[in-house]
Design a protein around this nucleic acid. Structure first.
Length: 205
DNA sequence: ATTAAGATTGGCT
DNA sequence: GCCAATCTTAATA
């Protein structure tokens, strides 16, 4: 298997996001190699998306998002967690896709080590963006890392084991109603923490 | 210089 | 279900 090429990432984040589902995320390091099948992502659409870190223009933190596509944007949050994004689109157009969950495929022992848990608890290894980053050894030192030729990359064809669903994004307060979260129905994506549905959007009963 | 919030998680009731 | 942990970032003054 080889990394997806630059061209794959050079289009709208909303287009890239669902195409990432079912593909293989790979992380290679001295410690070993871990891989997983991507099952949940969220698109962040730059200047037109109030929830995007790039909404108010370039800053020191989000600089990578404004660079060329096919790179990793890694940020630190809540004083303890890292989250990994795939930078899309083109220079100056800061679209990105947050990697939210994978089904662990190989290297589960190393994942468990990094996570500080028993590898037998497979669902806790890389379900949730901060857990995924930890399991794959991704921190700020990989911010800007090239997905084409770098230690972290995405490859393969789409292997889907359930329906692809689009729904509201998780954990944000702005533009929370946009259905820009894409996931595979099944046991691997984040559990539904009942996103507050607006009464107007709830089908009558 | 100060401050409020945060693309989360894990532990406890 | 609720809440503390923990500290960087960016907005405000």
């Amino acid at each position: 298997m080889k990394p997806l090429g630059r061209a794959f990432y050079a289009r709208d984040a909303l287009e890239v996001a669902p195409l990432l589902l079912g593909r293989t995320l790979v992380s290679e390091s001295e410690a070993g190699t871990v891989t997983g099948r991507i099952v949940e992502v969220e698109a962040y659409c730059g200047p037109r998306d109030p929830a995007s870190h790039a909404y108010r223009g370039p800053t020191q933190r989000n600089a990578v998002m404004f660079g060329p596509p096919g790179h990793l944007y890694v940020y630190f949050t809540y004083g303890m967690h890292y989250c990994a994004n795939v930078v899309c689109e083109s220079v100056g157009s800061p679209g990105a896709v947050l990697l939210r969950a994978v089904e662990p495929l190989s290297g589960v022992e190393l994942m468990g080590e990094r996570r500080g848990i028993d590898p037998a608890s497979v669902r806790l290894l890389a379900r949730g963006p901060a857990r995924l980053a930890q399991a794959f050894g991704i921190d700020r030192s990989l911010d800007g890392s090239d997905l084409v030729g770098g230690p972290v990359w995405i490859g393969g064809r789409q292997v889907l084991r359930g329906d692809v669903v689009a729904g509201p994004r998780i954990g944000i307060t702005k533009a929370a109603e946009e259905p820009w979260r894409f996931y595979e129905a099944g046991p691997w994506a984040s559990p539904l923490r009942s996103p507050p549905l607006k009464a107007a959007n709830v089908p009558g009963r």
